Every structure is written in C-alpha cells, then in structure tokens.
Amino acid sequence: MSPQFHLEYFDPPPELSRHVLALFYFAWDEDDISDRHPGALPQIVLFPHGKGQMQFDDRVEPVQGEVHMLAGFEKAVPFTMEGPWHAIGASLSPLGWAALARQPANKHYNTLIPADELVGSDVNAFAKETNERYRTGDLTGAEACNVLADWIAPRFEPVPEEHVPIIEQGLYWLSSSLNPDIDVLVAGSPYSRRQTERLITRYFGLTPRALARKFRAIRAANLLAQPELTDEGEAEIAAAFYDQPHMIREIRRHCGYTPTRLGGPKEPLFQTLLRMKNLDRLKEFRSIGE
C-alpha cells in the first residue's frame, strides 16, 4: 500500500473466473498525478473522478469521460492526471476481452477506447449512474466493483468454440515460464504454426514472439522490484536473458526504466502494478497443459 494512493483487488464471481482475472478499486487523491501504466492486461474501467492524458510514442490521448476500455499496451505508457483520480475496473483475460469487446485485441492495442465503441451505448448510462452513486457515497469502491461485475456478466458473448482451446493454451504457455518457448506453444496447439500465431495475435494483441518478450521483461522487472531478490528469482532472470545488458535493454524498452530505477519513488503506482497481483491468476491456467 502506498501512502499516496489506495489500490484493492477483488476476486471475480466464480461464474466469471474464465473472463475476469480481477476486479479492482483505485483512489489517488492528490491534485497533480504522473506515473506509468504497464498495460499488461485488457481492462474495462469506470472513472468517477479525474481526467488527464496518456503519452503514446506517436500521439497524446485524453483520459476523460465515464468509462474506457483498453486491450493492452506494447510497453508502459506515461500519463498525467488532474486529481483526485478514482477508478473502478475489471482486468480481463484474453477470452474476456474477446467475449466482451467482440473485436480482435490486436486491432485495439496501444490505445484507450471509449467503451461505447465496443460494447454499445448503454454502457454510458450504466457508467454515469454507477459513478454518480459512488460520488455521492451510495456505493463504496468494493460495491461498485460488484455492480460492474453484475453489468458485464450477461454481456459476454460466446467466442468461437474451436478457438477457446488455443486461448487457454496461450494462457498456460504464457504463465509457464519467464521465457516461454514458442515451439512449446505450437506443439500444444491443434493448429499449424502459422494459424497458431495468427490466433494468438488476434486474442492476445501481439504475436507470440512479441508477447513472450513483453511479459519476460515485465516479470523480470517484477522480480527486481521486490525488496529482496531470492536466489531462485535471480536464477530465473539469469536463464531468461542472454546477459545483463540484454536484460537492461529489454526492461528499458517495455517498462521505460533501467533496472536500478524500476518503480522509483516518483512513480509509485508503476512499482505497485509491476507486482502484477491481477496476473497471479494466470498461474491457474498451467494445469491446462499438464
């Protein structure tokens, strides 16, 4: 817990466990806020308080309005916000994104999207009502998370049944190692290599090679951000990269920092998000391939 902000994660209802990895409530009550967002997972997020902007490589996007969605970012994105800034959201699995957004993840990567463009205009009335109830004190952050879960639950559309195994296999593969082998992914897939790569890109937002590279850097940064790096963690990092300069380059590319500055005091939210609590449930998918 940071003294500057409050962040809580909640388990989704059991019936949503394949689609929602975690519900979350966030509040940061300072006037001027700047930090980075890792963009590791798809999300749908209500914003009852706060507005600002995100700085992508080629453009600046506003962060304003009642509700947004994101499919993910290829690398950490700097942002500034006029506080107080509060958010109520759900981190989605790739299956959850596909079922709710009904759009390929790679089509919407590296952008923040008004949610009505993906899930229909009724999300605006829902978000406005829920945010107003939160603003007036009728809902706590935890209660608002439950309201969001109840709203999205009936809106998950079926994903092509023949594609579900490759999504689950992709989750198992991604969670199986700090540096997952693409040949292992292909070997466990019912499709050809080319079709497997195409489907992973569609549902996860990046090609398998780019996806493995991104999560290797984020997980290594996560380990290095821990107060004490265990011998096991150090060995895992050493095995995942060619050498230390390679590790530094990859973490700088995907996280925006050299390892000695990961999650420094000027960006405490980024440091907290690097712990990836909402990614812990990915480990549950390891049993699919075992």
Rank of each mutant, 00 (worst) to 15 (best):
D58A: 10
F285D: 00
R216V: 07
M247L: 14
R261Y: 10
L206P: 00
E74R: 15
Y134R: 11
A144F: 03
C255P: 09
P14T: 14
A235W: 04
F26Y: 12
E232F: 06
H254Y: 15
E8N: 13
I167A: 07
K277E: 12
G50V: 01
A149R: 04
R135H: 03
A127E: 05
H86M: 09
L92I: 08
H108M: 14
P227Q: 08
G188K: 02
F285R: 04
M54R: 12
N110K: 03
E234I: 05
H19N: 13
P245T: 05
N278G: 00
P268C: 08
P158R: 08
D181E: 10
N146S: 14
A212S: 11
A240Y: 06
E143P: 00
I166R: 01
L46I: 13
K128P: 00
R198A: 14
Y203V: 03
T201G: 07
F10R: 07
W151P: 03
A98I: 09
M276N: 04
N106H: 15
I88Y: 01
F5N: 03
E267L: 01
S175L: 05
N146M: 13
G256N: 07
A187N: 10
L46S: 05
I166F: 01
D183Y: 01
Q64I: 04
E236V: 13
I88R: 03
N222G: 08
I167W: 06
G256V: 07
E82T: 15
H163I: 09
G72P: 04
I167D: 05
Q64R: 09
A115Q: 03
V184M: 09
Q271E: 10
A71S: 14
I200E: 01
A220P: 08
A220L: 05
Y9H: 14
E250V: 11
I182V: 13
R193K: 12
G72I: 02
Q271F: 01
S91Y: 06
L70E: 13
Y172N: 10
P13R: 07
G39K: 01
Y257F: 14
H108G: 08
